[in-house]
Design a protein around this nucleic acid. Sequence first.
DNA 1: CTACGTGCAAAAAGTTTGCAATCGC
DNA 2: GCGATTGCAAACTTTTTGCACGTAG
Lengths: 127, 127
Amino acid sequence: MERTTRQKTAILTVIESARRPLSPQEILEAAGLQVAQLGIATVYRNLKSLTQEGRLQIVTLPGESPRYEPITVASHHHHHFQCLHCQRVFDVHDCPGDLKKMAPQGFVVERHELTLYGACADCNAAT
Amino acid sequence: MERTTRQKTAILTVIESARRPLSPQEILEAAGLQVAQLGIATVYRNLKSLTQEGRLQIVTLPGESPRYEPITVASHHHHHFQCLHCQRVFDVHDCPGDLKKMAPQGFVVERHELTLYGACADCNAAT
DNA sequence: CTACGTGCAAAAAGTTTGCAATCGC
DNA sequence: GCGATTGCAAACTTTTTGCACGTAG
């Protein structure tokens, strides 16, 4: 049911070859070089489906519009670590575990997302 | 140079009496009960100035438009819970604690953000 | 062939701005 | 009274949607 189109291929290629998160507008411009007449709506539709498929993740920085970057390790529950120096995002394969009791009375926790911020190994070594 | 207007007072009161971050739209609706004819532009202008004054902080969740919550002297480290049914966001005053050991070798954790997702008390009661 | 995916344009949602009228100090 | 602040509407930006056509499987 999922088709391989020139548009989807170009969009994914652009995102995977960038080594930083891209905005929808940047993706349109870069992928538009390969597929003329590429529409912004197609970019959004593909970003949404690729995100749901777990191939992309949304990077949300305060005061900025969302950016997208590839997820290389998928399938299992994991979290993220963002380096405050190089902005890169790393996977964290550990998990604090049972968080259900953290919620207030009457609340039911179904899932959670955790992002750690700090300095990555590379940036620590550089200082 | 900074004036006290009914609008600014109402907006700040609404945000400070909510125990969860509010969206500009929610603020407009709540403060509009006290100040008829309150315009959304006024809400945005006040949110911007109050944030710059350091009285409010922006809460940014992935895929969501920004929400605002007060910064008070009593402000402390806390997290957020988003209801998957009504989309509202609540404060969670609990914290899993020491997460430093979750990071990979060589990484230094400075801070973390945790978002729980599930059903809030209201939506649980409704089902 | 048969839908899923696309392009275009319009619509919706979110935010900012111009301007005359209003109101705090 | 003076000038900061407001309300309204229009402008802008970002994202979504409707619909007819193109095209992958």
